[in-house]
């Protein structure tokens, strides 16, 4: 396996720090050589900052990538927003000489350069591809057969799917399999592949619109008989966790890393469930 460095982003360390600690615990349990990439900033968030100014988005993204390049590590995200931004910035710089020149003209002012070629990874696909279901299965000491999960992939995980080659956008399976390896069941539901509603700056600007999208998913999850939501993105996580107040649902919202802490029999206090609006209990 390669050398990995974890990119923290904003929402995990600042709102759901349990996702950060759970991820490091899981990495340790699976012998993944991963440290935390320091000195990073916001990725910057694709929905808001790319919407405001693509040049600034590209330059700040390139700075974050240059930090991983310095270490000779693949950059790993636990958030689909970070994954979307960093992956796209890396991709644009890789394929557009003008963009690369522009980014480096800005980075030069802070004494940095991004040469290119850093691999941007999502922890979920890293687990699926580099670790594999067999190795994960071998670590499961506590079968989670009481869990019926409504899995939520989130948008920027596998799209654009032809280029990323992580999963099929219309019929994805990686997260379902990553969940079911713990003994849990992944239930099917309407709108399974749909957006949580938070992205694109919609949550910040038109919260009721974001909530309407979330409600459709929650309603469908309820019909499906699921007893929790499993996601791989702290922003979707926040949208589902905080978006249930006053509704008829109370699905615990669990990040894949937190699910693995439970299934591997690791220290569950590392999951930081205190930060959750909906109590994580079954």
């Amino acid at each position: 396996m390669a050398k990995y460095s974890l990119f923290l982003g904003c929402i995990a360390p600042l709102r759901y720090p349990g996702i950060e600690t759970a991820t490091m615990e899981v990495a340790k349990a699976l012998d993944i050589d991963m440290d935390i990439l320091d000195k990073t900033s916001c990725c910057p968030a694709p929905g808001v900052f790319r919407s405001f100014d693509q040049d600034t988005w590209l330059a700040i993204g390139a700075r974050n990538l240059s930090l991983a390049e310095e270490k000779g590590a693949e950059i790993v995200t636990i958030c689909n927003g970070c994954f979307g931004s960093l992956w796209e910035v890396a991709d644009k710089i890789e394929h557009d000489e003008k963009k690369k020149e522009y980014a480096n003209s800005i980075l030069k002012e802070i004494g940095r350069e991004y040469k290119g070629g850093v691999k941007v990874r999502q922890f979920a696909e890293l687990l699926y591809t580099d670790v594999g279901l067999d190795a994960i299965s071998a670590k499961v000491t506590k079968k989670l057969d009481h869990i019926k999960a409504a899995v939520h992939y989130g948008c920027h995980y596998f799209k654009p799917d032809i280029v990323k080659e992580i999963d099929n956008r219309e019929r994805p399976k990686t997260l379902d399999e990553l969940v079911e390896v713990t003994g849990a069941t992944s239930v099917d539901y309407r709108y399974k592949n749909a957006c949580c509603g938070a992205g694109g700056g919609v949550r910040a600007r038109a919260k009721e619109v974001a909530q309407a999208m979330t409600d459709q998913k929650l309603e469908a999850m309820k019909e499906s008989g699921a007893n929790c939501i499993v996601d791989i993105c702290p922003f979707c996580h926040l949208q589902f966790d905080q978006g249930q107040s006053g509704l008829r649902t109370s699905f615990p919202v669990i990040h894949l890393s937190q699910l693995y802490v439970m299934a591997f029999g690791l220290d569950e206090s590392k999951n930081g469930f205190d930060a959750h609006a909906v109590p994580v209990k079954f």
Binding site: G47, C155, P160, D161, A194, C195, G200, V202, R205
Partner: peptide, 15 residues
């Protein structure tokens, strides 16, 4: 237009 800001950038349309 306000609706310009209602896209969540999910990229389903692109795909």
């Amino acid at each position: 237009a306000e609706e310009l800001w209602l896209c969540t950038t999910c990229t389903t349309c692109d795909e």
